[in-house]
């Protein structure tokens, strides 16, 4: 079993009337089974409302399955007494950094998690140092978070999660609000954590370019996992992706259009360099 495993996962959002009776149900996750290996970098794609955020919230027991089971490092997330252990193993980073930062000094914000876990003070500082260093924000430790750029804030939020030493970090559109450089900074930091610290990364994104460096890509539609495979396998299916309201990276689309027009190109081109190479052979 991998670090995160789902079997027959189903989740219904319930709507209640004024008496508290269930008025309506909406199925957000529909029979999802997946198995994520420790140390993998996973990207989850899907249009708005496809169920990817709902799935992510199951990975640290913010939501519990209506049917089926979710395991985080072998622990069934529906076991209430294990809740805090699960949340320490799988940390979560959301879209808006302003909603995640709570302290008035960067280092205190990062120390909040481990302090809450009852870690002794000197160890907290060690963790704060390590986490800030890992995301390249050590020199900002005494700064006020509200003077940081979006990308810097989001890296502080990631350091805050890292300080709890999770095995796995789930990022729900962490770059949606950032400018191009901020986006790059955050992605580089996440890749570094994955490579250096061996943290399993689950990245939910709408930017196809961010998914090409993943080990594996899952595509969700209508609450189901409809495609999975390496980025190359997934992105070579341009038409199928478009039918799920998604896109491919701009160069992949260009390569696809050129090959439609009769240019002989290999399938599934993902980067500028690959296309350049293929065209100038």
């Amino acid at each position: 079993m991998g670090i995160i495993k789902a079997l027959g996962l189903v989740f219904d959002y319930l709507k209640y009337d004024e008496e508290g009776n269930v008025e309506d149900t909406q199925r957000a996750i529909d029979d999802v089974s997946l198995d994520i290996e420790e140390g993998d970098f996973i990207a989850i794609l899907g249009h708005n409302g496809s169920g990817k955020s709902t799935l992510a919230k199951h990975m640290n027991a913010l939501l519990l399955p209506t049917e089926g089971t979710m395991w985080v490092e072998g622990i069934d997330t529906s076991k209430e007494e294990k809740l805090w252990r699960i949340r320490q193993k799988a940390g979560m980073v959301f879209q808006n950094p302003d909603n995640q930062i709570i302290a008035s000094v960067v280092e205190e914000d990062v120390g909040f998690g481990p302090e809450n876990m009852g870690i002794p003070t000197e160890k907290i500082w060690k963790r704060v140092d390590d986490s800030l260093k890992a995301v390249g924000m050590l020199s900002y430790r005494n700064h006020s978070p509200n003077r940081l750029s979006g990308g810097q804030k989001q890296r502080v939020a990631i350091a805050g999660v890292m300080a709890m030493r999770p095995k796995c970090i789930v990022l729900d559109e962490p770059t949606a609000m950032l400018d191009p450089i901020g986006r790059r900074e955050v992605l580089d930091a996440v890749h570094e954590l994955n490579r250096e610290a061996g943290v399993t990364v689950i990245l939910i994104t709408h930017y196809m370019e961010e998914a090409i460096e993943a080990d594996k890509v899952f595509v969700m539609d209508n609450g189901k996992v409809v495609m999975q495979g390496s980025p190359r396998e997934v992105f070579s299916q341009v038409e199928t992706l478009k039918s799920y309201r998604l896109d491919v990276p701009q160069v992949t689309e260009l390569a696809y259009e050129l090959s439609q027009a009769g240019v002989k190109l290999p399938q599934g081109i993902l980067t500028i360099e690959e296309l350049e190479e293929a065209l100038c052979r």
Partner: peptide
Amino acid sequence: TAGLDPRGR
């Protein structure tokens, strides 16, 4: 269009 999927964008 921040936060929208490609089609919505």
